[in-house]
Deep mutational scan, measured.
Amino acid sequence: GHYRIRINGREFEIRGISEEEIRHLEEALRNGADEKILKEIVDRLRG
């Protein structure tokens, strides 16, 4: 998958993330885990 997200007015492209991972992120966001989720995304993109 290849997705664009906007955070604090800046747009980011996220590549190589699966539909299942996105559902997991959405679930966590609904549970209020904003900073933790951003850290997970950044860590994943770093490799």
Results as ranks from 00 to 15, higher is better:
G1A: 03
G1Q: 05
G1N: 08
G1C: 12
H2R: 09
H2F: 07
H2D: 15
H2W: 10
H2G: 14
Y3F: 15
Y3N: 10
Y3K: 08
Y3T: 14
Y3V: 15
R4H: 15
R4E: 08
R4S: 03
I5V: 12
I5G: 02
I5L: 02
R6V: 15
R6D: 04
I7W: 03
G9M: 01
G9D: 06
G9L: 01
G9R: 01
R10A: 13
E11C: 08
F12V: 10
F12Q: 01
E13D: 04
E13M: 04
I14F: 14
I14M: 04
I14N: 00
I14G: 00
I14D: 00
R15C: 14
R15A: 10
G16F: 11
G16A: 06
I17R: 02
S18E: 03
E19W: 10
E19F: 12
E20Q: 13
E20C: 05
E21M: 10
E21Y: 06
E21G: 12
R23V: 09
R23L: 10
H24E: 13
H24M: 14
H24S: 11
H24T: 14
L25S: 00
L25W: 04
E26F: 05
E27H: 10
E27Q: 09
L29A: 05
L29N: 02
L29T: 03
R30A: 13
R30W: 05
R30D: 07
N31R: 09
N31A: 11
N31E: 09
A33Q: 09
A33D: 11
A33N: 07
D34N: 12
D34E: 11
E35Y: 07
K36H: 13
K36C: 09
I37V: 11
I37K: 08
I37W: 09
I37H: 08
L38K: 02
K39A: 13
K39C: 14
K39M: 15
E40H: 08
E40V: 11
I41L: 11
V42I: 14
V42T: 05
V42Q: 05
V42G: 04
D43Y: 02
D43R: 10
R44A: 10
R44L: 09
L45R: 03
L45I: 13
R46A: 12
R46W: 10
R46F: 15
R46C: 11
R46Y: 07
G47H: 12
G47V: 13
G47R: 10
G47D: 11
G47F: 04
G47W: 02
